[in-house]
């Protein structure tokens, strides 16, 4: 059987050297022109907190811009490894940032399509011998030209079962991550401690992932700001009393087990909306627009969090 030449050869970009390089490149102008400025600004306004993450994205953006400028001067510009790992507690915005990451890389021309394919272990690992490789390859094919986001990546590796097919998926992933760096960017996400163990067990992954970004937990104020945004997006407002109640709610909820940052806030507000709807429905007067958009203190205060329980609607049986 003949050997197959895989990588496209040197004739891949025949027209690149025709344009004479400019004398100087204004990186600021380039920054605005590439649309990167707009994406990063959106990121700043849309996402509350996450200081270190935003700083890291800025750095990566700057690196890519400088690389592009270098390429225009004909300097050696090896396409950088952009595989990333996002670690952090649940609900800290890893998926949201991954989606933004896809946009950023697309604007900068590092991925061609800029779509995000989100997968978990189920989508990569098969159930019987010979099932895993086609499944993993299928996912990789779908993600090419975009970003592959592997949520809870540490589940891929199950040391307790030596016949687990996860290892096969990992090997294929590593191979494609190395050989087709131009075609797709892989983002691994998961909780910090478990990802650390995953990387220790698979050193190949750690060396192929250039950017490790840690997502910090939100502070109380940030969570309240997130809540405000979620409500604003759905045309709800908190009454002043409710705002005070919500402040206390967040403080209490943060100390409880199973706290999932932004996700907990969203769930709490969803439950408050349910209680509000119930209250309006049981009230015996016609409702106004103001009634429909305002969440009152009682909608939040009836949460079981205030009596030391876990929040749920309808209330759990004691």
């Amino acid at each position: 059987m003949d050997a197959v030449t895989d990588a496209p050869s040197a004739d891949a970009r025949p027209f690149e050297n025709v344009v004479r390089p400019p004398d100087a490149i204004d990186l600021r102008a380039e920054f605005v022109e590439s649309g990167l400025a707009a994406v990063l600004e959106e990121l700043d306004t849309d996402l509350v907190g996450l200081g270190p993450v935003k700083r890291r994205l800025r750095e990566i953006g700057a690196l890519l811009l400088v690389d592009r400028a270098r390429a225009r001067f004909g300097l050696q510009a090896v396409s950088p490894t952009l595989h990333m790992s996002f670690t952090g507690n649940p609900g800290t915005g890893k998926t949201t940032v991954a989606l933004r990451m896809a946009q950023i890389l697309h604007r900068l021309g590092y991925v061609r399509k800029g779509h995000l394919v989100t997968v978990t272990r189920d989508d990569l690992v098969g159930q019987y011998i010979g099932h895993t490789a086609p499944k993993t390859k299928d996912v990789l094919k779908r993600a090419m030209g975009g970003v592959l986001f592997i949520d809870e990546a540490y589940y891929l590796y199950r040391p307790e079962n030596e016949r687990d097919y996860g290892q096969e998926a990992i090997e294929i992933l590593l191979q494609v991550m190395e050989n087709q760096r131009d075609d797709l960017v892989v983002i691994l996400a998961g909780y910090s401690d478990r990802m650390e163990r995953f990387f220790t067990a698979n050193p190949g992954f750690r060396s192929r992932v250039a950017h490790h970004i840690d997502f910090p937990d939100y502070s109380g104020e940030e969570l309240e700001a997130i809540g405000g945004r979620i409500l604003g997006g759905m045309n709800y407002t908190l009454s002043p009393d409710a705002e005070e109640a919500f402040h206390r709610y967040v403080d209490l909820r943060m100390k409880q087990p199973h706290f999932a940052n932004g996700r907990s806030v969203r769930n709490a507000l969803d439950r408050a909306r349910l209680r509000q709807a119930n209250r309006l429905f049981n009230g015996d007067r016609p409702v106004t627009v103001r009634d429909l958009t305002t969440i009152e203190a009682e909608d939040i205060l009836s949460s079981r969090v205030f009596s030391g329980g876990i929040d749920s609607y309808p209330p759990l049986k004691p």
Partner: peptide, 14 residues
């Protein structure tokens, strides 16, 4: 049916 970029097809072609 669900490949968005030619790189996926080239992968299979290879």
């Amino acid at each position: 049916f669900d490949v968005r970029d030619a790189a996926g097809v080239m992968f299979e072609l290879n």
